[in-house]
Design a protein around this nucleic acid. Structure first.
Lengths: 201, 201
DNA sequence: GTATATAACGAACGTTCGTACTATTATGCG
DNA sequence: CGCATAATAGTACGAACGTTCGTTATATAC
């Protein structure tokens, strides 16, 4: 019972790594088992089906994102500091995912499943909606704190911030552009400056 | 001789559609053949290998992008009009690719191959570099025409424009957000306004 | 109109896929 | 320690994968 749980976690950790490289669909039970030094059937027994394995793997990836990017940002003061921390953590996440092979699992899966209906896609969409909502909320708090102009549209700003992250991930990974992060930070600063209330108070 | 060429084109057109949905790696010769009502071996004979099929398919996709987004924009006056046309066509492309299943083949492949070395990746990177270069060039022309401020960084602006497109594609496809295009246009206008030289001349 | 080159076919190769069922080993509790 | 149960291994399956083969049908060229 306890042993099973811990190897299950071991499997899922490796599954996240592998799926980042070959996609959730390309993730095969056989190669995952080989990589872990266990039998295909032994591994399979932990999950009833491939779809379940995909779901659990995605959940694991989402949880790690949450821990790395989100939870730490909540310690910062609400408003602009928290929003900045969020983006900084997010940039770190992209950078970290760029060093390891495969990139961000959620971004890869978003493209892979963007028109493959099913439980995986549903989970993906739910996670994405949660993320967007959280960012928009942070923006709204920054407006309340009078850090950002009241006419700021939280969803529009969220959209533009997300675009910066996507472009960074893309440039960093496909093009191997080492300056992508600098570009991202510059874009972020310009974006914040455009919506910020001047410091005169 | 001539017959071979035209069925080859037929195959590639279908391959672009199919690969957009399942990825270039997920594209299987068997299902492609079935879909075209021909035999696996007959289809395979047109390409020496699966990798060749993937390459030709990607080239076909790139060519179509070029025709749809790029060439028409060259008719516009150099400077801001041409840059605007470029982005407008690009938005149309994303919108068009969002209605058809699968989305943009190049974006999907970018994620799929971002760390799978090989000829496919090389072709992808080359296409991406060409695209970036062309956008940056259009921006540079807009600076020369005194439509944009001389301190504008063409590569930085290209990066941010690309981010808008990526976010649009993402929101449109994964989230099915019908307002993504409005958000994109708003972001574009804000971005241009920030770099534009006031119309007073 | 016939010869020849090209295009398409059907079958089979060996491998890998996900899944099912059974047997064996390891673990945890009384 | 012994036993129940959980965890892993083993084996087999049908299907699909990319690829190769030899053959047939079709289109081009003389």
């Amino acid at each position: 019972m306890r042993k099973g749980g811990q190897t299950r976690t071991l499997i899922l950790n490796e599954a996240v790594v592998l799926a980042s490289r070959v996609g959730l669909e390309g993730l095969s039970i056989g190669s995952l088992a080989t990589r872990l030094g266990m039998s295909k059937s032994g591994l399979f027994a932990h999950f009833g089906s491939k779809e379940d394995l995909q779901l659990q793997t995605l959940k694991q990836g989402q949880a790690r994102f949450e821990e790395t990017v989100f939870r730490p940002a909540l310690k910062e003061a609400r408003g602009l500091p928290r929003l900045r921390a969020l983006l900084a953590n997010w940039f770190s996440w992209v950078e970290q995912q760029s060093e390891v092979p495969g990139g961000c699992l959620m971004l890869a899966a978003s493209i892979e499943y963007d028109d493959r209906p099913g439980a995986v896609r549903d989970l993906l969409v739910a996670g994405q909606r949660e993320l967007r909502g959280a960012i928009a909320k942070a923006i709204r708090l920054a407006i309340d704190e009078r850090h950002l102009k009241p006419e700021t549209d939280p969803w529009q700003l969220t959209f533009e911030l997300f675009g910066i992250v996507l472009a960074t991930h893309h440039d960093r990974r496909l093009l191997g552009d080492a300056h992508a992060l600098d570009r991202a930070r510059a874009a972020l600063e310009r974006l914040i400056a455009a919506h910020q209330i001047p410091a005169a108070a």
